[in-house]
Write a protein that binds this DNA or RNA. Structure first.
Lengths: 137, 137
DNA sequence: CGGTATCCCCGAAGATACTG
DNA sequence: CAGTATCTTCGGGGATACCG
């Protein structure tokens, strides 16, 4: 797997499934948990599989593994395996390319926050969000 | 239908299906043709249904109607029906809220362009893109 | 710890035909 | 012109169990 861009994406490109480069960008983070993963990895230097697994509500290992695999093959994050005390460990961390995406994600966060505030979203949601990395209480 | 936010989105909000406000933002344009629609409407003052239909490759009327309906109910675009010479006409145009999303879409366009250039995407795609509203030839 | 392997489901999108 | 109405397909994601 030396492909610079994920196979499916390439296929879509050649098929003309993307109308434009913005759809290409969209495809980078359109998986259900990709934004959270990028967000979290954008705030710490590294993370283990199970850390992410525990952090992200309701995700299954299979799906998480999948999202991570795609993010890796899109070169937004990188995976490093090593060993300590006969224990196999793996860390995930952002690449530069992944980091270059963070400003966009930040803007998405801000836009959503503005918009949700404007409509007084039910407390149920606000509680849920409190678990996320938001500075304001 | 006086709902400020689309039902499905609202349901997801109350269910806690969104981990964060960035996922909410994502849901605004994650339909297959929403980015193009917003992009096009962002560059002209208004557009008819069939103009969009002809402009967007491979979309079916059903799907286009669906995407438009959701964009309307998310208040990103607005729909106006009127009559001329016994002909029913409809125009779609951006709302202020929709326009506030354009900077993000622009950034997505730029990011994708950078990234695709870095990998010399096949000419087939570049031709496809040429049909889009891009200033550079 | 860091994943696979199966089986299943559901909803978005496609194909095609029709309408006021 | 601006859509509906059906029927079908497809694949991302969920549930659960197992593995080195």
């Amino acid at each position: 797997m030396t492909d610079p861009i994920r196979q499916t994406v390439l296929k879509k490109l050649t098929n003309g499934d993307f109308n434009c480069e913005k759809e290409f960008t969209l495809s980078m983070f359109s998986g259900k948990y990709k934004l959270v993963i990028l967000w979290e990895l954008g705030h710490v230097s590294e993370m283990h599989f199970n850390e992410l697994y525990r952090l992200i509500d309701h995700v299954t290992k299979k799906v998480l593994a999948n999202q991570l695999r795609e993010l890796v093959s899109d070169q937004l994050i990188k995976r490093t395996a090593y060993e300590r005390n006969n224990q196999k460990l793996v860390i995930y961390q952002m690449t530069e390319i992944g980091e270059s995406l963070l400003p966009i994600i930040d803007q998405m966060y801000e836009w959503g926050k503005q918009r949700l505030n404007a409509y007084q979203i039910p407390a149920a949601f606000k509680l849920d969000v409190a678990g996320d990395i938001s500075k304001d209480a």
